[in-house]
Design a binder for these strands. Structure first.
Lengths: 343, 343
DNA sequence: TTCTCTACTGTGAACGCTCACAGAAGCATG
DNA sequence: CATGCTTCTGTGAGCGTTCACAGTAGAGAA
């Protein structure tokens, strides 16, 4: 069943070779390749046999040249800092997208646009039509790239709701607010009443929404929101540690902390340990993400699972739909409370 | 300086438009695009001006169709398990390669070949010439993909020395053995004499080499190698924890442990803590990789830094050279001891 | 002058594919 | 029998580029 490739790189078979082998015309082979409509069963079979025999693989460059499509999509990361790349969530997302695309036989082009220069070059590359669409990952708002691409008419799906532009651009996001609500309700259900929070950066949708959920639940429960219980971080471990120290200083009576990311929660655990507080006996700690950091922490973190596999699948689905001509869409996916040892 | 794109996606300018604008022929424009040899300064200037004015970007599909090159390279990951994707080193590598390639204006196609099916499809895709070369990342040996690609004549650079195939395939690796030697010498210099080791999987070059370095130094120092001090892991945190427990059982008098990865070292630290051993007072612990896990650990890990940025740069350099017709090459890069709190 | 050489430029022919169109065959309908 | 409709098939054109080749102009040598 080996293809007759007797050593040495030789010219790969073309659609012509297949046509000759199958005794049909190029047109018929092309039709078989593109869905097989208006092709007789006999021809269909002959062409498929010829493809197998010759080991033919379509030349995507030739195809793209005429169709104008590239049959590939870009995965664009517009982050100046390396931090995001260290975020374990990113891995899962990238992996999920690659696989979801592979199911459609679409390769993924990884693009990093950290500096301004790179951003310009990549925008150019994309708008020139070298990819059919873009999966955009950038946590911070005010990203000019998204706006530029949208204006250029490039199909685009963001991960997380872009703050700047309204409903013009598709996005897929976990329900941050609802997740935060679940966690705070959980902490309340444990009898905690002085629940602190270490928020994410407040120029990101996640940072804003998770804090909003926290406020809502405390207000609804009649416990009330105290500003001294609120500190901000930037999702990094170090900022979690610093945040916890500030929190302990401002509110020594704190009996629970909702931390807006697992990585920060690790920092919070360190700070609490150093301060001699036991977790969860003295202070219960809840994270967010359910990243590997959650299970690596001691004690293992109770956290909110983001459905990354579903997020990546949905991003790809929405992007392909948009490439196919559909309108932009927003998808919000539910989160899940994962109970471990820190609460 | 905006290009005259008055709203709405319009047909992008071609080399023809540029030629007309500059008052020269297609051929001259093409020559300018490809290095500018045999072009008069006047024409050169006119063409460049026309390119700026029209906002021309070369159509890579048309170019690839005729040149047979794709001007893109694949980053191939052949790992069944997701673990590798969680490995922080992977991030750095992927990121470094993307950037190194971006400097040459070459996009990177990310390919995951976990299952057998995927592997076959991707091999087919690659051998069909859709990428000019492949950066291969697969920790375990006996990978059939590498052999297949090599046979098909696809330029290939592996990360880490592939165990199966000899010197036929290029690779770039850190000097695992030397790194291990440095660490063990460091532990000896602290006065430790009963130095245990938790190795990596022994079907990976890293696993084998790091253990070899350990043995060499102990032998050279006249301390001698005791088999009860040697246990194996699989680079995962859990296996580090299990390994440390076995080690403590077999050799309760152990006063230092060289662990072949930071992630495993985290596990070792947990196990030691649970056993009531103080680090570094009772047992010194040395890791390998200098991954984020090293600084996240408590105490912060003394470890061996792998020069990931240089590794990725070298991989790209060697691959491009090979695409350019040069012979395969092996590059071994030095490591560095990073001293922290665990020793 | 005439020839040769070099530096430069333009032109047709590919590359491998899809698309539009023309046409053939089969079958039902008028 | 003509007409229309549907299903199927082959053919030429062309996508935007590079490449090989032919050709031009100018400089220097015979």
């Amino acid at each position: 069943m080996t293809m007759s490739n007797t050593g040495g790189r030789r010219r790969p078979p073309t659609i012509h070779d297949v046509a000759r082998e199958a005794g049909v015309s190029r047109g018929t082979v092309s039709r078989v390749l593109n869905g097989g409509h208006y092709v007789s069963p006999a021809a269909q079979e002959a062409v498929n046999a010829a493809i197998r025999k010759t080991g033919y693989v379509v030349n995507r460059h030739a195809r793209s040249l005429i169709t104008g499509r590239s049959d590939s999509v870009g995965f664009l990361l517009t982050e100046p800092q390396e931090r995001f790349f260290e975020d374990p969530n990113f891995n899962v997302l990238l992996r999920g997208c690659t696989q979801a695309l592979a199911a459609h036989d679409i390769p993924l082009l990884l693009m990093l646009a950290g500096t301004k220069d790179e951003r310009r070059r990549i925008t150019r590359y994309i708008t020139a039509g070298h990819v059919d669409g873009v999966l955009l990952v950038s946590s911070h708002s005010g990203d000019p790239v998204a706006e530029e691409l949208r204006e250029a008419g490039v199909p685009l799906v963001a991960c997380g709701k872009p703050i700047g532009l309204g409903s013009k651009v598709s996005y897929v996001a976990a329900d941050d607010r609802d997740g935060a609500r679940d966690m705070v309700r959980h902490l309340l259900s444990l009898g905690r009443r002085r629940i602190g929070v270490v928020t994410g950066p407040l120029d990101t949708p996640g940072g804003v929404e998770r804090l909003a959920g926290y406020r809502e639940v405390l207000t609804e429960a009649g416990v009330g929101v105290e500003e001294r219980l609120i500190v901000s971080g930037d999702y990094s471990r170090a900022s979690g540690e610093a945040g916890a120290e500030r929190l302990l200083a401002q509110a020594p009576d704190v009996d629970a902390v909702f931390v807006a990311s697992d990585l920060m929660a690790q920092g919070v655990l360190s700070a609490l340990r150093r301060a001699g507080r036991r977790v969860p006996e003295d202070v219960a700690v809840g994270g967010f993400d359910d990243s590997p950091a959650a299970t690596a922490a001691t004690p293992a973190l109770t956290t909110i699972r983001q459905p990354w596999d579903r997020i990546s699948n949905e991003m790809v689905r929405v992007l392909l739909a948009q490439i196919g001509g559909e309108d932009p869409a927003a998808v919000i996916l539910p989160t899940e409370l994962v109970r471990r040892d820190s609460t």
